[in-house]
């Protein structure tokens, strides 16, 4: 059974004109979001994106943008409480990514 999270929330964007189809994004994506066709990359499953940021980080021409962050409610709560960006700082004990 496939794990699916909320629809239409992922911030993943691909700038088509910059992409030269190296396929690095498709290689690093842990959820097979991209597909390489005719020396171009296409987003095949945007709702599968977990915003880990691997694709954007490894794109040699910066053709991908995504608001990468920790998909972790505990981190978000701590971020709200402390007024800082949610970070996956597990050293506080308890829950962690």
């Amino acid at each position: 059974m496939k794990d699916r999270y909320l629809r239409n929330v992922a911030t993943l964007r691909l700038l088509d004109e910059k992409c030269f189809g190296c396929g690095r994004c498709a290689e690093v994506c842990p959820h097979r979001v991209f597909i390489v066709e005719d020396k171009k990359v296409r987003i095949k499953d945007k709702d599968g994106c977990m915003e880990c940021g691997a694709c954007a980080k490894n794109c040699p021409v910066n053709a991908i943008t995504v608001k990468a962050g920790v998909g972790c409610a505990y981190a978000v709560i701590m971020g709200w409480l402390t007024g800082s960006e949610p970070s996956c700082d597990c050293s506080g004990g308890g829950e962690c990514c």
Partner: peptide, 24 residues
């Protein structure tokens, strides 16, 4: 259960925020 998003392998930051804005 909501806190388990941090342990899961497929939840996105934007998704967790969306979920929490309603759930919390």
């Amino acid at each position: 259960a909501m806190n388990f998003t941090g342990s899961s392998t497929y939840t996105s930051f934007s998704g967790v925020i969306r979920e929490m804005k309603i759930a919390v």
